[in-house]
Nucleic acid binder design. Sequence first.
DNA 1: CAACCAACATACAGTCTGCATGTAGATCGA
DNA 2: TCGATCTACATGCAGACTGTATGTTGGTTG
Lengths: 208, 208
Amino acid sequence: MQQDSTRRSNRDRTEATRAQLIAAARKLFTEKSYAETGTPEIVTAAGVTRGALYHHFADKQTLFAAVVEREAAAVAEEIERASPPSLDARDALIAGSDAYLAAMRAPGRTRLLLLDGPAVLGRAAMDAIDNRHGSRSLREGLIAAMRSNTMTRLPAEALTALLAAAFDRAALAIEAGGSAEDYRAVLIALIDGLSPTRLQALRPARTR
Amino acid sequence: MQQDSTRRSNRDRTEATRAQLIAAARKLFTEKSYAETGTPEIVTAAGVTRGALYHHFADKQTLFAAVVEREAAAVAEEIERASPPSLDARDALIAGSDAYLAAMRAPGRTRLLLLDGPAVLGRAAMDAIDNRHGSRSLREGLIAAMRSNTMTRLPAEALTALLAAAFDRAALAIEAGGSAEDYRAVLIALIDGLSPTRLQALRPARTR
DNA sequence: CAACCAACATACAGTCTGCATGTAGATCGA
DNA sequence: TCGATCTACATGCAGACTGTATGTTGGTTG
């Protein structure tokens, strides 16, 4: 029953080691790429050995998946925190897309979530991760808009996927130096284009 | 000046070896992934040695880039071959997108061009390749549509990129088992949504 | 025909991944 | 409480891969 500082329960040890590994891997995977980051480098940064890594994770890919999952959750949380609860469907969508683009400006996030993630884990696995976090709210927002007849009725799954793809590409393009205003304008035009009543003609003209 | 079968000019040798390497690499990169394909396997399939590979290509990435470039050109050619010359802007866009989705059904093409390509070469390099081939015609089609006032005027670069991203994701989703009709319907809705006169309301109702 | 150069082939160094084996500390049953 | 067992690691090893350096053969050129 000694409560020494050296005495830790197995659960605490596991939790701490896994957290250190994920944090170190996240840092390196965002600074460099998945392929350019080796497990020796990760464990050195985490202060453990490769034995610990392969005890807690089946392989390098599984550790990567844990990092991606955690990062996708962080993005979803930033979006949720930034989106006010009571807006009409269209403005909620635009607020959400702005929050998404802002969240994706964190260094290395686009490569981690939009380039390495799909390539290493596959599109299907990335879709599953996205559905657990970010795009879930996007899909629900779109369904809400269609239910309230502010949006043309379309297959929800496909619409969610294609709009999400456009958001993703916009994030990549903006990071590559593209005009954020241009991409934002096109995203809004795509969303407004789905309105059956062409609300945009009644709104004040968009700048530029 | 002997014209033996064993006697070949240096230019012929280079051309043949490079072609064999690219063909073998293409086959393996489409069957498996870039990461899962090693250079020993490639050179064995090509009937040469690794020395030849590293003589003609700086590294594995450079060979991969050559494969991607060639495959992107093949996709662009299939699209151009399938698209009749005289259609109005909107129908030309839809015909082009149908041809693109059809071309991307070739086994392994989506992973090569849409997953491994961006991850290995980077989005910027992939944009450069796309601009040399496929998306060039898409951009021109969009500009033509905007000029003829059948499409809302928007920043051409951004619009091209985001629509191309939607096409790409549709190709991935369809290969993963998604409903081709659903994704086609959403793509058309996105395109028609950009029409300033809301032509879609005047057209016969879309099925489903 | 001699010198040179391009197109390879071979060998090697360094690094990485995953696993197998060994060990110390934590947990559990008697 | 005390051995038995299991978890959480550390260490060492085998196989594979990438890129390069060096050697060799055949083509090219003056």
